[in-house]
Design a protein around this nucleic acid. Structure first.
Length: 194
DNA sequence: CTTAGGATCGCCT
DNA sequence: GGCGATCCTAAGC
């Protein structure tokens, strides 16, 4: 597939942006790697934090696009999203897995692990490896500490059902880099590619 | 390989 | 009081 040029328009639908992000490099304070797994969420989406309307936790999801929405998962993990659509809409893309490339030792220390494969294989692990906290909530993605870099080569993107949700399993809004060994989980065989 | 339980917080009914 | 856009560890097959 072909990537949208950077900087692309975060006002696009979250399902499109989620697939565009696969293969791009994300750095936070110079640490990170290649995005290999994302999930899209939208307002009319029972699995989305925005489904029930604005509240203090999800406020930045209803803010301007192109910013971070950071939430606390299960009271323990920090998870990073990119806000999509127009301000007030309530859409976003969850960054679920990254192929570690830059700052490997920093990420190993933060995670307390050596195994590269497990450093960023899941949204909570990404948060820990990139030291995401509430302080990042609402920050612009086109400025430090964030950096989003274009892919060097075209990538093959696969899609499938989202993980860890009970409602909204019907839409294939999980996207991944085909064949990557850094996914949080493998994609079901024979899934759609683009 | 799969399954089960605990940690721990914010918003919901 | 219940339930998550999760992860880790331990135990079972």
């Amino acid at each position: 597939m072909r990537h949208a040029p950077l900087p692309f328009d975060f006002a696009a639908p979250s399902s499109e942006i989620a697939s565009w992000l696969i293969g791009l490099t994300l750095l936070v304070d110079g640490v990170g790697g290649r995005i290999v797994e994302t999930e899209a969420y939208d307002r009319e989406d029972p699995a989305s934090h925005s489904f029930a309307g604005p509240n203090p936790r999800n406020a930045s999801m209803f803010g301007p696009p192109g910013r971070a929405y950071v939430y606390r998962s299960y009271g323990i993990h920090w998870c990073l999203n990119f806000v999509c659509r127009e301000a007030g809409h309530g859409a976003g893309v969850l960054i679920r897995a990254i192929e570690p490339k830059v700052g490997l030792e920093t990420m190993r220390e933060r995670r307390g692990l050596r195994d590269e494969r497990l450093l960023c294989a899941g949204p909570g692990r990404v948060g820990q490896a990139l030291a995401i906290t509430r302080a990042h909530d609402g920050l612009r993605l086109d400025r430090p500490p964030f950096r989003l870099l274009p892919a060097k080569e075209p990538v093959e993107v696969v899609a499938g059902p989202r993980i860890g949700i009970s409602k909204g399993r019907d839409v294939p809004w999980r996207f991944g880099l085909r064949g990557s060994r850094f996914l949080s989980r493998p994609f079901p065989r024979g899934e759609i590619s683009s």
